[in-house]
Nucleic acid binder design. Sequence first.
DNA 1: CTGAAAGCGCTTACAG
DNA 2: CTGAAAGCGCTTACAG
Lengths: 357, 357
Amino acid sequence: MNSENKNLGIKELAILAEVSIGTVDRVLHNRGGVSSETKKKVLKIVEDSGYKKNIIASRLKLAATSVIRIAILVPETKNDSNYWSLPLQGVDAAVTELSVFGISAEYFFFDLLHPKSFGERIDPIIDGNFDAIITVPFFEAESNRLLARARKQDMPVVFLDTERTLNSKGNFIRQNSFIAGMVAGRLLHGLVGSQGIYFVVNIVNERGKQINNYQRENGFRAFFSENYKSDQIEIHVINHPMEGELDLTPEIQQAFQIAQPKGIFVTNARSYMLPRLLESNNIVNTRIIGFDLNQKNVAYLKSGAIDFLINQKPQYQGYCALKGLYKYLTEEEDSQLNMDIPVEIVVKENVSFFEND
Amino acid sequence: MNSENKNLGIKELAILAEVSIGTVDRVLHNRGGVSSETKKKVLKIVEDSGYKKNIIASRLKLAATSVIRIAILVPETKNDSNYWSLPLQGVDAAVTELSVFGISAEYFFFDLLHPKSFGERIDPIIDGNFDAIITVPFFEAESNRLLARARKQDMPVVFLDTERTLNSKGNFIRQNSFIAGMVAGRLLHGLVGSQGIYFVVNIVNERGKQINNYQRENGFRAFFSENYKSDQIEIHVINHPMEGELDLTPEIQQAFQIAQPKGIFVTNARSYMLPRLLESNNIVNTRIIGFDLNQKNVAYLKSGAIDFLINQKPQYQGYCALKGLYKYLTEEEDSQLNMDIPVEIVVKENVSFFEND
DNA sequence: CTGAAAGCGCTTACAG
DNA sequence: CTGAAAGCGCTTACAG
């Protein structure tokens, strides 16, 4: 009520409460060993004064004695240009920036094709007594298991890349894939119009279509049904397993013969497979939109063979996850544990700004 | 050479150099009063050890004794929805975030229409002994004067919004307007194609066309001349003084009668003036692209009357300027004093992400 | 259950 | 020209 506007320190609180600073600290951190009467008295002072911990004094002391340790569990990558190296780059950048505050990251890897490999990392991470975990929720059962174990130890978990419903509430830093699909719908329709035939192309690995693919396709369709009489606009779907390069399988050949594609929406990072395929089939004047700024996609964007790319900002996701956890662990401020990463539209002319986030 | 990989502190340096920590500090800060021999010895240790100041210990001490003060000189605003309140919001956010590190901002305002009002703020700012200045380079002579005065006092200056050549090198955090114009060209051409007639509309105040308007128009033209036979694509220009609302002056009426516009590029934030104008003139099927996410622009974007907006991220510019100066003033790290703000493409479906930056 | 004291790494006022 | 000491605000090990 009669809150001071000057920022009091722990010393002033102690004087006001007529106790020592040690006791104030015990109350502030709920360290116990304080009589309930004293605790009440101190808490009142703390609240009335609007006390806010000086985080840099706190970290100066703590960085030297107890470093915050974050476990990072992501898909293993063969090389640095792999998508999954990108969130790690963001994590690294944040660690570098915050290392003086006493924070570190340790990496664990799993195999995208084998849920078991994810499950096997859970024990080492939980037993490692980390302060928090950053991972991706690709495997539902295993993610639930991780989340349940982490909850028991009070370890916050931040999931990157994909949002999915889990048994208990998780934190997600990811792009809204449904909205990304809608944006793709608008951009592609702007180029193609209402007459041409659209294709949604899902080029999937042996695990099949993932949540992001479904959400993006749904968003894409939603754009058309909200803005146009959807039944007048033809949208075909190709689900294609990726075995090495995308090839003119009988299914695709048939699909493209039945209806010549004017606009193609590739629901993941593999849009670079389309231009060659179209060319070898003598299909021209087809507009393409896909995801992610991998080298091949960017090359086709620059050559004009791909019209738009949507950036998920994977580096930024990793960066935000680590900084958000730091903020939560040091200030109990959880507002940055969940983020809706902007759907960033990339064309040839502005791609240079985004190649590193 | 034989650099330690552990981060040494000033205490360890002092032991290695066989001097007191006070002396090490004198050398590190060039505070003088050290014999050249001692200085040399200490400097060698500092370099060999790869010493890096612990910035949080430094700020803990300094925040209590000497707060960094930044002067902000921007156009005065009548209301909070004015464009020029946006960079201030970003500055405020950064100040809030960094205030515990001991940084503060003080505001000065000038009248966009009167260079003199800018000039009159120079003395108070220079005499105010600020540590740095954030402003905008709208008036060439006055900006040069400010820069020259600031240089003498070793005050770094960061200019927002617009880049321009000044007598000495300044720091700029701004969007590249030429590239923004190119992006606008690509987006509009995607909707309109090579047959329709394009208009570049500059709606200017009594100071006339500004640097940004020229750069954007040039970028727009460059897109067409680089990608299409520019002489085949008709680009008309309307330069219109803004007196209250944009109206169907004889000039505009004539221009629109001679050639019906299919794509309109508004080179500043006033694209919201076009839809009503077109409607009252019974011109339909015209695509519009403009700048900035002001309320009216966003409303038309949502209604579909405006197709694309380009975001200059003014809040982000202010935020980056303050954080960049903090980094420079505390760590002598100047890499964040110049930034090329991404050309952010906004459509109805993703506008919600950007309304606050 | 509580207090007094040392210390995180850097900065500075004071003493010599 | 140089050193010893106090202090920034918080945390913790120790003593009682």
